[in-house]
Design a protein around this nucleic acid. Structure first.
Lengths: 200, 200
DNA sequence: TTATTTATTGACATTTTTGTCAGTAACGTT
DNA sequence: AACGTTACTGACAAAAATGTCAATAAATAA
């Protein structure tokens, strides 16, 4: 029997890089397997570090989850606010904006994030979202001269529907023998038709 | 110091009644506090029985959760299929049907059920739903002479949106300073307008 | 009444998950 | 090269959650 002489080499990251590495691993777990798999051992393993490392950086597994929520919300808001819609072509602008939104919710895990927040009663962390909504409403108000109220309604409607479509659309579609993207297409079609009618 | 002489009286239910009691308690927990509170001790306490009683009837806490999923799905399908829509008045029929659906998802916990199923990868339990969808599509096809394909699309769309509205509508509405039912109203308005246009 | 069945339970055992700690090793500074 | 800081780790402790079991008591049958 040979004696194990591993050099015991280590990766040493900056605190921020390490936190980020851990959160990214946790995010993958969340999207792929759901919140119940966000256990200390699982997250650590996915991140390729020891359990104690996770605790060193976050203090508790609970804090990891909270931090993940915050980061995912921030990323989501940022990625959506960053989309530049063609200002000269309203129809194209609507479509680009909505497709980006629905894509974020369906393929980037935002719908799962929303469901997770809701089921764990952590919706108080959504202040960033409120600010983003208000910012967009203001801007639209200034640019297109639309009442902020109306824009808010539009966002409320779109985001709510995007949650449903992103979370359950593919599953329900497949269940009844339709392509997974069917629910999204139907929803977008309907939304776009209505926006056109209201010329938003 | 007095010696404790509790009579040790017990409630003794039929197996079915006991199972039902436990599942109802679990359902309340799920709706009020989310799936992560479906722990053995919590469920037993909410049901007013000992931990061992729960295990006696279900074998494991996991089995309790599975049974709860099944029961909630069955209840949901049944309550929705039981609605009788006014056959003579298409417009009224549409509205009644959709309001019932959205109500089930928003206030009766169906949206939370859907999210739970999705996040725990238990969507294979939805066969009852598939059957219900096909039954409705058949019936509609016969009654109103509409292609089953189209009816299926309509159901896919409605249910998917109901999930989003039921799960996230109230929260997002409140977040941006609107009444919690705002998202539902906007969605119903839009759906009904489109159904009218397509005369479904 | 007595016997039988079994839903129910507290006490205990097991497993799972989280958290602590003292020591190790990577990296920058001197 | 020596030193200080601290990210990192394995081994261990603690807590939380699940599950086992023998005994108890409520219902029904004999």
């Amino acid at each position: 029997m040979s004696i194990n002489n591993k050099p015991a080499s280590r990766v040493r990251r900056s605190p921020e890089a390490s936190r980020s590495n851990i959160l990214s691993a946790a995010e993958s777990l969340l999207v792929a397997q759901g919140p119940q798999s966000l256990r200390l051992a699982d997250v650590a393993k996915a991140a390729g570090v020891a359990n104690a490392t996770v605790l060193h950086h976050f203090g508790s597994i609970d804090a990891v989850q909270k931090a993940l929520m915050e980061r995912m919300i921030a990323d989501l808001v940022e990625s959506i606010m960053a989309v530049d819609v063609p200002l000269d072509d309203p129809a194209a602008a609507r479509e680009v904006a909505l497709r980006t939104l629905f894509d974020a919710f369906e393929t980037r895990g935002a719908a799962r994030l929303a469901a997770w927040l809701e089921l764990t009663d952590e919706t108080s962390r959504l202040t960033l979202v409120r600010e983003a909504v208000q910012e967009v409403a203001q801007k639209k108000m200034a640019n297109a001269n639309l009442p902020a109220e109306l824009v808010e309604d539009l966002i409320l409607l779109s985001v709510t529907l995007a949650v449903g479509v992103g979370l359950f659309g593919p599953t329900l579609g497949r269940l009844i023998g339709k392509p997974p993207e069917r629910a999204r297409e139907l929803t977008l079609q309907m939304l776009l038709a209505n926006l056109e009618r209201l010329s938003l």
